[in-house]
Design a protein around this nucleic acid. Structure first.
Lengths: 316, 316
DNA sequence: GCGCTAGCTGCTCATATGAGCAGCCTTGAT
DNA sequence: ATCAAGGCTGCTCATATGAGCAGCTAGCGC
């Protein structure tokens, strides 16, 4: 025949063979015998059926999680874990709840008793902790000082204590603010025994959970808590994202800031040494910050929602 | 872990691996290296992904033809060819046109110059012939006498002559009515040289095209053209279907009738000897006749529409 | 008719794959 | 603490599979 176009008989034959192969799991040799063709012919027909789009293979949703999008996200950004929750972008609180539950599931699944968990402070992390089931005796390390929030609940200290308590693991926590007015105070605080002990644990942390902030009003708890001077100064330095006080520019490169000197919390090098940092970003507005975070190489896991995930995959 | 339920990380890992395997065609060994797993683990994950419904494989439409339904029909009834046209069941004429085009495509695709084509008379066959492109010099044999239709166009003779003319093949045709008043006349007619010559070609016919009638008013051209006596008599004998004058009961078994003695056309044995008889049934009302036809083993190809195909697949 | 090209077919051989099996670890009960 | 059960893991070996190749056939221009 002409060869270019496939006729209906050919199409149906391909469909018939493809159906038995893919849906009933018959081997090509078997089908060759059955149809009186060589196994090569059968293989070619199956290939053609796939290439021509006659057979469509799709990875479907699995409950709330869009596994296909998750897999693509993980693949694209070389992530160890990616979870995309298929939830509409309602208000931030509901989003945090959904992502928090998913992150809790993820953590519950991957954490073993040999892990050491680091927890930074972020509202999404608090949401995760609320949904978290007891872990198998995992020690928990506090990564950042406490940030004064209007409601005053669920500080970094509470979060660490709760998780460790429920898990029966050691809690490495300290009482200190996230930022202080001058570098000297910060240095002094870092030498406090309990702070120093917690920080000594950092190299042993195997997994950590953090939020991602965008250096804009209302997009980062740290931004909102900072002085107008610091806000401007960091913007001037090109700060785009903050991951629990670790500042990055839009390309994900670390930015040295004077503010970091006045911070009681994990720094860039210490975070880089953690095998897997799981971030829980939400809200399409924060896309530039998330982009920076994944480019930085600091992030090994991402728990987010459909809209943001699609935005991340679209560009570049 | 618990083992029963699969967590999100597991689900995403399965999706990720299944995606690369099915969509990008990577081998399991390759994926095992890439993910740092054993190839067995990869195989198990892929199996689980398929079994759990995470990967969905479907055979999709291909233009007008529902290849999946076609394949299922062919599989179920052991047909060499089955074409299901996805067209709504409008009026009979439009249905005939659609099926005629599909049948013409099928014939054009499968017929070679070594084939000998037999054509019975049916309105669907006429529709097919109108859509038929020239065949590669295929000889054409007339299978049935001419039936007087109101419009008088496209008799069995015309159909055969047209196809053979366009194809450049020999035309084995004869001028004789389909039915005559008595058996003696029929015998005499069959001995006419041109009739006999055409019938002598029957054993060499490799593919034939026919319609399927249901022995009910308005469901069979032959029924409508018969005397009231014959109508009743054949019904009494349990006739359900007629394939160009070959009568079958509801189970597809041949029914000997006196009417057959008065018919100038192919008989049951001769039809059974044809390697592939392609029928073009339409209209859900004729389902019982089509069922009988496929059960008879006479039919090797079926060109029909969605509603009828689904009806056939549903029962039993 | 003669050669030419192009597409189709089925072969070989290295590689991938699946079924079944035995060791090991986890888990839970006594 | 000890033991039993179950599940998970990675091995072996027979079989299935894919890439590339050479022969065959059909169609085509001269």
């Amino acid at each position: 025949m002409t060869g270019g176009l496939i006729g209906p008989a050919q199409a149906v034959l391909m469909a018939s063979i493809a159906r038995r192969h893919y849906l009933h799991g018959r081997s090509k040799v078997e089908l060759a015998r059955e149809f009186g063709l060589s196994r090569f012919k059968v293989a070619r027909l199956i290939d053609e059926a796939r290439d021509s789009g006659l057979v469509r293979i799709e990875i479907s949703h699995h409950g709330e999680i869009d596994v296909d999008l998750s897999a693509r996200l993980a693949e694209r950004f070389q992530l160890v874990h990616a979870i995309v929750v298929d939830t509409p972008e309602d208000d931030a609180a509901s989003l945090r709840d959904h992502l928090g539950r998913a992150a809790a599931q993820l953590l519950g699944e991957v954490i073993t008793s040999k892990d050491v968990l680091g927890l930074a402070w972020a509202r999404a992390v608090s949401a995760m902790v609320r949904a978290l089931r007891p872990l198998p005796g995992t020690p928990v390390v506090q990564l950042t000082g406490a940030l004064a929030l209007p409601d005053g609940r669920d500080t970094s200290v509470d979060v660490v204590r709760n998780v460790a308590g429920a898990s029966g693991g050691a809690a490495h926590l300290f009482y200190a603010p996230f930022t202080v007015p001058d570098a000297a105070t910060a240095r002094a605080l870092r030498q406090q025994p309990e702070v120093a002990r917690a920080f000594d644990q950092l190299p042993s942390v195997t997994r950590a959970v953090a939020g991602i902030g965008l250096w804009e009003p209302g997009q980062s708890t740290l931004y909102d808590a900072s002085s107008e001077f610091d806000r401007q100064e960091l913007r001037r330095l090109g700060v785009c994202a903050d991951i629990s006080g670790v500042f990055l520019d839009a390309d994900g490169k670390p930015v040295r800031t004077e503010l970091a000197e006045r911070t009681i919390g994990i720094n860039h090098e210490q975070m880089q040494a953690i095998p897997e940092v799981i971030a829980i970003p939400y809200g399409v507005a924060r896309a530039p910050a998330v982009r920076a975070a994944v480019r930085s190489g600091l992030i090994g896991g991402l728990v987010t929602h459909t809209a943001l995930a699609e935005l991340l995959l679209d560009d570049e």
